[in-house]
């Protein structure tokens, strides 16, 4: 049974509008945010996380140079772009472990494009944070590149950034 929020009369499950007052019932199944953390998840868009400007390299950068960059700049990933800042791939710590591993020294001179993850999942600035969290959870990603409307790279978000954002909201509301 669905209670009509407008007139309070009872309607059959699945009804599109209230039989008494014709008030629409279709949006009753949409999620409603209960806590500050949920509101943060539901209402805020990725832009609120202030995605950092990613460190980028060209596809021909040697593996050794990219590894140095990850260590020196304390990064978890670099984004590989072409000369028009269009996304080609991403190279993360995980890729280093899975694809270089003990052969790191042997592969040091190879171009990064041979070991990067090609066409990673991307998001846009206007996507909701909940959507980003879902993507990262399902895909097991720690980093997701953010594209602008011209499909150029605009930023990178990390799981760490989302966790920090949510716990900040949680402590602010507690």
């Amino acid at each position: 049974m669905i209670l009509c929020p407008a007139c309070g009369s009872e309607n059959l499950d699945g009804a599109d509008e209230c039989a008494e007052c014709l008030h629409s019932l279709t949006d009753l199944s949409l999620p409603r945010a209960m806590t500050a953390v949920e509101r943060g998840l539901l209402d805020d868009r990725i832009a609120a996380l202030n995605p950092r400007t990613p460190v980028t390299v060209g596809p021909d950068a040697p593996v050794s140079e990219v590894l140095q960059k990850l260590i020196n700049d304390r990064l978890g990933c670099v984004v590989v772009v072409d000369s028009q800042q269009r996304l080609l791939g991403i190279f993360t710590e995980r890729d280093a472990l899975m694809r270089l591993n003990v052969d790191a020294a042997k592969l040091a001179a190879r171009p990064i494009s041979s070991v990067m993850t090609v066409s990673p999942a991307t998001l846009r600035m206007r996507d909701k944070i909940a959507f980003a969290l879902h993507r990262m959870h399902v895909g097991g990603y720690r980093h997701v590149p953010i594209l602008d409307d011209q499909d150029r790279l605009a930023g990178v978000i990390s799981i760490r950034g989302i966790l920090a954002y949510l716990t900040e909201r949680h402590t602010a509301s507690a």
Binding site: S29, L41, L42, K128, A130, L133, H134, I159
Partner: peptide, 17 residues
């Protein structure tokens, strides 16, 4: 931790239009 968070907001996260 992310799995835990996703578990606790199933309505928020999985039923987004």
């Amino acid at each position: 931790l992310v799995h835990y968070l996703v578990d606790h907001f199933p309505n928020t996260i999985y039923t987004l239009p």
